[in-house]
Write a protein that binds this DNA or RNA. Structure first.
Lengths: 220, 220
DNA sequence: TTGCCCAAGATCGTATACGATTATACGAGT
DNA sequence: ACTCGTATAATCGTATACGATCTTGGGCAA
């Protein structure tokens, strides 16, 4: 795995550190779908016992990133094409709602922060880092809604599909995405919430059609 | 607590049994919001060690029923009025979608099953059991959508508010709910999905207005 | 060969033990 | 009396140990 734990967060307890490290490894593709996660092995990697590892795995299972088979070990979860489609369908219902709820609470500061993230995306070449910044941008648009449960639900759904997205996306898709981001921000600035919601739906749809065409998914 | 473990499910592993028992106790109100959940105490109650108890608590935290404070113990989570409202808002977006997706897949068997559940609700006096049957009915309407992630999300959201609902609901509300259930089923049978969705939204809204009026919530 | 069975190794699941952290009670100093 | 610090108890967090379960590979019979 090549991950050294200790540097990430020394204040949290061990199981949260393990969960953070494993989550990051899964999202970065260092641990791919179907990969077995043996407790002893992970414990040895991080120089801890199995107990915090097990708790981390339970946490990640709840987030949908890991599948736990009783007495038979854990694997990095995989998604069928239908499941990817399902998750995008849910996001398509939730994210415009989040944007709509955030809209009345937007401040100039939110727009500046969004623009700052977009500028960072422009100069980003690493796809994994791009995915992180992509989420940061969307989060910046949803956070003013002040709906923490909704935000966490969307984040979890996002995490579950983004790790497959980075394998299929190409440069032209990235450019389209960025143009949509900028237009989205402009529409929000201009006070056109309806236009923004329509565009957001479009923005969310494009990757899912791409998935369907390439049918690039791991073992279902 | 007065809960005897062993009888519930002997096939699952210990941590799942504990999680099931604790979840049930929380939903039934035997463990109320803010109640501290001490690991040693729970372990003693169930005649097990703390390890499976800890894993159960992590699981329940992910479901939103428990709050884990590092090194300071777990408590049964409570919801502010704003959070209850937020969760109903999310359900209002997701449940009509689930119904809409289920609609093309409905079979006569689904309708019969729904009716069977409604008949059971008619004769039910225990509010906790009523809540369970209420969920079973809604699940019967959503399951044909074949969207497991959506169903689980809705179920978790439902669990998070239903335990407060049972404290505020009264007989007249129950009758209204049951009438709406029957009409909902009739509309689905008649093929009127639009009417069904409108009614479902109404059905979901009535309790949340009730909450707002009574402002009955635990320590926020 | 093919299929079944069983033994050995690998891995999981949890009880026990103990160090670490937090809460509580008490007494000294102001 | 009030605050603060310290001792003690309560509780949490994790390492170790070991029994339970699953996987694997080799031997035997059909």
């Amino acid at each position: 795995m090549g991950l050294d734990l200790g540097d990430i967060q020394r204040n949290k307890n061990t199981s949260e550190m393990i969960a953070t490290a494993l989550r990051s490894a899964i999202l970065r593709g260092k641990l791919q779908s179907g990969q077995a996660l043996r407790q002893d092995e992970i414990a040895a990697q991080f120089n801890v016992s199995k107990i915090p590892v097990r708790e981390a795995l339970v946490q990640l299972q709840a987030e949908g990133l890991v599948k736990l088979n009783p007495s038979r070990g854990a694997v990095v979860s995989s998604l069928s094409l239908e499941e990817v489609d399902e998750i995008y369908t849910i996001r398509l219902a939730l994210e415009p709602m989040a944007l709509r709820r955030a809209f009345p609470n937007f401040t100039p500061r939110d727009f500046m922060q969004g623009e700052h993230i977009l500028n960072k995306i422009d100069h980003e070449t690493d796809l994994t880092r791009w995915a992180e910044l992509n989420w940061e941008f969307h989060e910046a648009l949803y956070r003013p809604a002040k709906m923490p449960h909704l935000l966490r639900t969307i984040h979890d759904l996002h995490n579950n599909v983004v790790r497959f997205l980075v394998h299929t996306i190409d440069r032209s898709q990235l450019d389209i995405s960025q143009r949509q981001h900028r237009e989205l921000l402009a529409l929000c600035r201009a006070g056109d919430i309806e236009g923004a919601c329509v565009l957001l739906q479009e923005h969310l749809c494009s990757p899912v059609t791409m998935f369907a065409n390439r049918s690039q998914t791991p073992n279902p």
